[in-house]
Nucleic acid binder design. Structure first.
Length: 819
RNA sequence: GGAGCCGUGGCGGAACUGGUUUACGCGGCGCGCUUAAAACGCGCUGAGGGCUACCCUCAUCUGGGUUCGAAUCCCAGCGGCUCCACCA
């Protein structure tokens, strides 16, 4: 064993050793219970960054620990290889994505290995591989058969200067990210997944999984179910014409004094008087431009509207009310029309004040207090001036009014969701081709003809990058004549391929299932493998995917279950969302701020084990952590201390058997086993490492039996193994063992050594700490009370007082309540 | 505006289910080793005070409450972070 702790000489050697023995292969313990530990699929940029390192440290500790607990562990890896960055780089630099991506993967993979992550590389997959994405196409066709994917006309972002459609992410404050032109809305056809059909199942499933509360809350909000009533407001002077509105507050309907409808509501132009039409058109145009120019995330615009000149009838009061066109009514939500109740809705109130529309209160607070005069009263209460419903509480009135509407045939209960269908068409090259063909003869309406399964995969054509990836014009694939022109699968005549590709979130929706069976060329994965390994036991990744990937992959799983591919309908039992790693300045790491620290630097300077310990020790897994060079050195010092501790005691423990009669160190050792085990089960890595430090400190101070010391050192190394595997392997060898530590079972705590025969317990008088006494574990309450009261310090506080009550908490404290 | 999370030393953070607040690490101070420095080792380190080998008072954002006992539970407020945002 070397004198000095030198990770550079240790780490690559053990990495090579593990690989040569294939120690991390899943499936080599067929009878054992399984554990599927997964880190979110990375996009292969050229270098691993700290956020990645953090995820892999977490999954690796879990994977290494689970193997030691006898589980058959699946800890796979792969690459989210399709996507915008590679294509944009290609547009800029002319390098084909298919050329750059493998280079990036190789470099990233090197980093993962040098961090000592125990991956089963036989699972490795890349989503840009036709052997993978053919199954995206296969899923697309199955979903098409079931009506789960459909073609629709939807509003998309369009840059008039680049003449191309942009993804939402490519619109920055309403402008094109590349040329800065104002983005306009355009309606073009696209393919969409019917995720909304699963809204309720997606909500329900959230109750069955162990996910962070905030992610669950975000998904609930995102799905955004609201229960209400759809009801018709008849139009005056136009028989059988009515505006249908959606409301969650049917109880306020007697206070509906006007209606507000979306500017592009189809009935507006149909029903508006001729004199108003030009003005309405102009207003609609203005709103359309404003919504785009303001962009996402900006403050809501000033509420504006125009009287459409249409009059409707409130179906409950029978009164005539005006119909306004308003910029705050969304065409895409509910029915695109609302009944406005200014007395009980803040938005309606603001609008009514601005345009001097009547405000009629119909709800009063249930506690008989006065409703506010200068703003809307939005809480539930008791109805007033509401005909037969007056006096009813809101909760009850909502239902009664809905029932009445239904009885009269003018309304029905309805549910609305915030969730929209998932538009998947992308005008991009570097993605999965959509397996659809358009034939003018067999498909004159352009609905799309599915490519037969036998023709899958529809492979991406090889291209001349400079010619095709210009970032302008039609979708890149449309320019590849030899590819886009094809035969109709029905008539064999000339046809065109769908030139758009799939959203890359399709790739990540099911990759975790492909890991089970990555080379299967007959099906996405076998049912037997699915039954063996699913669901994912622990899934680790960033919370930024809370309502993107983490929603899509739940949806996909439900579809896979319906297709009979797997038994489960929730992909991940437990989710861990790790916090971000901030730079030295406490700001989020970013290239533009120049505060990025690369794991590479740390590995080069201090070794992978130091990097791992630092990342896991600095903060609990779910919390953000600050980068600290001093703390990194602290972990390096700790490993150095352990090294010297063992190195310096080799002679003392030479030939000595671990164990011996119980003593303080042995008890400490076995309690540490118990503690670290619990902490690992609860994913408390930071405190687990503290416990190791405590054991190391105790062993350093030890001057008793060498057998106890040997045991302490061996256990310390065994417990260190999941966290700092290279150092632990080397030390294990140093202690005279020949088998790999990675194969060794987790140590068991001796139950006899984790219980103390005496405890130090706190003595309180009226809840204040006044002393401490040592009591035998066997002592009963009366004995404890007795000893405590005889303690001289405590006795002083009890002097002359009457003890009214004594609380004894076993092993912890005794509290005298005196007066 | 809505939803969620959080507030403990100089700093990162411990504290199991309400039971001795500040484990562990960092930083700081002192000492040792050294010609010297680095590295390493040892000791001290919440604040204030006293009769200073000992003891007291006060401290978990602020203010209330429940309790024998609150960092932990409840109410109100202040501050910070994240996500969604005209959702009818």
């Amino acid at each position: 064993m070397q004198d000095r702790y030198d990770p550079k000489s240790i780490e690559p050697r053990w990495q090579a050793h593990w690989a040569s023995k294939d120690l991390f292969r899943a499936g080599n313990r067929p009878g054992a219970p399984k554990k599927y530990v997964l880190a979110m699929l990375p996009y292969p940029s050229g270098e691993m960054h700290m956020g990645h390192a953090r995820v892999y440290c977490i999954t690796d500790v879990l994977a290494r620990y689970a193997r030691k607990r006898g589980f058959d562990v699946l800890h796979p890896f792969g690459w989210d290889a399709f996507g915008l960055p590679a294509e944009n780089a290609a547009i800029k630099e002319g390098v084909h994505p298919a050329e750059r991506t493998p280079r990036n993967i190789a470099s990233f993979k090197k980093d993962v290995i040098s961090l000592g992550i125990s991956v089963d590389w036989s699972t490795e997959l890349s989503t840009s591989d036709p052997a993978y994405y053919r199954w995206n196409q296969w899923f697309f066709l199955r979903m098409l058969e079931r009506g789960l994917v459909y073609r629709r006309r939807a509003k998309v972002n369009f840059c008039p200067s680049c003449n191309t459609v942009l993804a939402n992410e490519q619109v920055e404050e309403g402008r094109c990210w590349r040329c800065g032109s104002v983005v306009v809305e355009r309606e073009i056809p696209e393919w969409a997944f019917r995720i909304t059909a699963y809204a309720d199942r997606l909500l329900e499933g959230l109750n069955r999984i162990d996910w962070p509360e905030r992610v669950v809350a975000m998904q609930r909000n995102w799905i955004g179910r609201s229960d209400g009533l759809e009801i018709d407001f008849a139009v005056k002077g136009a028989r059988r014409k009515a505006f249908r509105v959606f409301t969650t507050r049917a109880d306020t309907i007697y206070g509906a004094t006007y209606m507000a409808v979306a500017p592009d509501h189809p009935l507006v132009m149909e029903l508006a008087p001729q004199s108003k039409k030009a003005g309405l058109q102009a207003f609609a145009e203005k709103v359309r431009r404003a919504t785009k120019e303001v962009g996402e995330g900006a403050q809501a615009a000033e509420k504006e509207g125009v009287d459409a000149g249409i009059r409707a009838k409130n179906p409950f009061t029978g009164k005539e009310i005006p119909v306004w066109v308003a910029n705050f009514v969304l065409a895409g939500y509910g029915t695109g029309a609302v009944m406005s109740v200014p007395a009980h809705d803040e938005r309606d109130y603001e609008f009514a004040r601005k345009y001097d529309l009547p405000i009629v209160p119909v709800i009063r607070p249930g506690d008989d207090s006065e409703p506010p005069k200068d703003k809307a009263y939005t809480d539930y209460g008791v109805l007033m001036d509401s005909g037969e419903f007056s006096g009813m509480p809101s909760e009850q009135a909502r239902l009664a009014i809905a029932a009445e509407a239904q009885r009269r045939g003018i309304g029905k209960p309805a549910v609305n969701y915030h969730l929209r269908d998932w538009g998947v068409s992308r005008q991009r090259y570097w993605g999965t081709p959509i397996p659809i063909v358009y034939c003018p003869k067999d498909d004159p309406e352009g609905k799309g003809i599915p490519v037969p399964d036998s023709d899958l995969p529809v492979k991406l054509p090889d291209i001349d990058v400079k010619e095709v990836l210009t970032g302008m014009g039609e979708p890149p694939l449309a320019k590849v004549a030899s590819w886009v022109n094809t035969e109709c699968p029905i008539c064999g005549g000339p046809a065109r391929r769908e030139a758009e590709t799939m959203d890359t979130f399709v790739d990540s929706a099911w990759y975790w299932a492909r890991y089970l069976d990555p080379h299967n060329d007959r099906e996405p994965f076998s049912r037997a493998q699915a039954d063996r390994w699913l669901p994912i036991d622990v899934y680790v990744g960033g919370p930024e995917h809370a309502v993107l990937h983490l929603l899509y992959f739940r949806f996909w799983t439900k579809v896979m279950q319906e297709l009979g591919l797997c038994a489960i309908d929730e992909p991940a039992q437990k989710l861990v969302t790790q916090g971000i790693v901030k730079g030295r300045d406490g700001e989020k790491m970013s290239k533009s701020k120049g505060n990025v620290v690369s794991p590479r630097e740390i590995i080069d300077e201090f070794g992978a084990d130091t990097a791992r310990l630092f990342i896991l020790f600095a903060a609990p897994a779910e919390k953000d952590m600050d980068w600290s060079d001093e703390q990194v050195q602290g972990q390096h010092r700790f490993l150095g201390r352990v090294w010297r501790l063992i190195q310096g005691n080799l002679q003392t423990i030479e030939g000595v058997k671990a164990g011996g009669p119980p003593d303080d160190l042995r008890r400490r050792t076995h309690k540490t086993i118990l503690r670290v085990t619990q902490q690992l089960e609860r994913l408390q890595f930071n405190t687990a490492i503290s416990s190791l430090m405590e054991l190391s400190n105790a062993a350093t101070d030890w001057s008793g039996a060498p057998g106890s010391l040997r045991e302490a050192l061996e256990v310390l190394v065994q417990l260190l193994a999941p966290f700092a595997p290279h150092t632990a392997e080397e030390l294990w060898r140093g202690l005279g063992h020949t088998e790999e530590l990675s194969r060794l079972q987790w140590p068991d705590a001796d139950p006899a050594l984790v219980v103390d025969d005496a405890y130090q317990i706190a003595v309180q008088v009226n809840g204040k700490l006044r002393g401490e006494v040592q009591v035998a574990a066997s002592a009963n309450d009366a004995e404890i009370r007795d000893m405590a009261s005889r303690d001289p310090k405590v006795a002083g506080w009890l002097q002359g007082k009457t003890v009214k009550k004594v609380v004894v908490v076993p092993k912890r404290l005794v509290n005298f309540v005196v007066a």
